[in-house]
Nucleic acid binder design. Sequence first.
DNA 1: GTAGCTGCAAATCGTTTGCTGAGAA
DNA 2: TTCTCAGCAAACGATTTGCAGCTAC
Lengths: 146, 146
Amino acid sequence: MVKPDRIGYKLSMSMLLQKCTEAGLKITDQRKVILKVLEESEDHPSVETLCERARQVDSSISIATVYRTLGLLNELGLVLKHDFKDTSARFEVDHGHHYHLVDTETGKVVEFQSEELVALINKIAADIGYKMVDHTFEMFGQKIKK
Amino acid sequence: MVKPDRIGYKLSMSMLLQKCTEAGLKITDQRKVILKVLEESEDHPSVETLCERARQVDSSISIATVYRTLGLLNELGLVLKHDFKDTSARFEVDHGHHYHLVDTETGKVVEFQSEELVALINKIAADIGYKMVDHTFEMFGQKIKK
DNA sequence: GTAGCTGCAAATCGTTTGCTGAGAA
DNA sequence: TTCTCAGCAAACGATTTGCAGCTAC
């Protein structure tokens, strides 16, 4: 179901940390750095890119920790994992329902929202007897020239 | 109207082979076996599963050939590649617009069709100035108990 | 104190690729 | 004949994991 209060809402660092604590995770320096870097990223970084950014703050952070942290955050639903048909997975903080269209010519990622789409897929799931718990949806397109 | 079940038109072997020929591919025995096995599969086999099935017909077929063949067929648009959050990719012959809902408890895959969904995503792309050339959409859900 | 976390390096494993002989056109 | 294709095995590369020391709580 759609949580209205999360649509287009920006999850703050303190909120993210709070949710981690609630989930029983220990708030280590590394996790704080990784979360901060993720939260400040305007793009959809790969694990490697994220690790590089985190290392600029704390050069000792290892890629294994980044993988483990992202895995946990993804399980908690705080972080989303995307497959843009690139070589590696891309991540972002879940700031509410929005989707991505990847420009097949430039690789640029356009974000968009659609309540209509959210409503439709929930309806579809219900129609075939299921409660939707997750879904993936990525679009690939070419810019229309005018 | 959403309608679960296997749907859409069925691409015949001869049609598949014809499209391969048109694309300039050589029709080898291995390719014929792989195509036949794929075309007869009612599920969404992984490369490994597909290779095992193909080997029952011709035990000399290697997994490398299966990978290469699927890659080519996918490029031609004859075969679709899915990510069911399993460890490996799943494949099927493209029998027309339909989607998948994976039961998160049993792993069972339910196919469904929705013209409404197709129309909506095309409209969304157009709204943001793009022509949709491809998209991925997978749902994950729990069966509603009655 | 201790359960959970980290860095390191090695292991995993799905997928790709170089090479060489074989076979379709 | 020619050029693609197949099988094999090695390479690749993203991700995971065992281990031993460290740290949040």
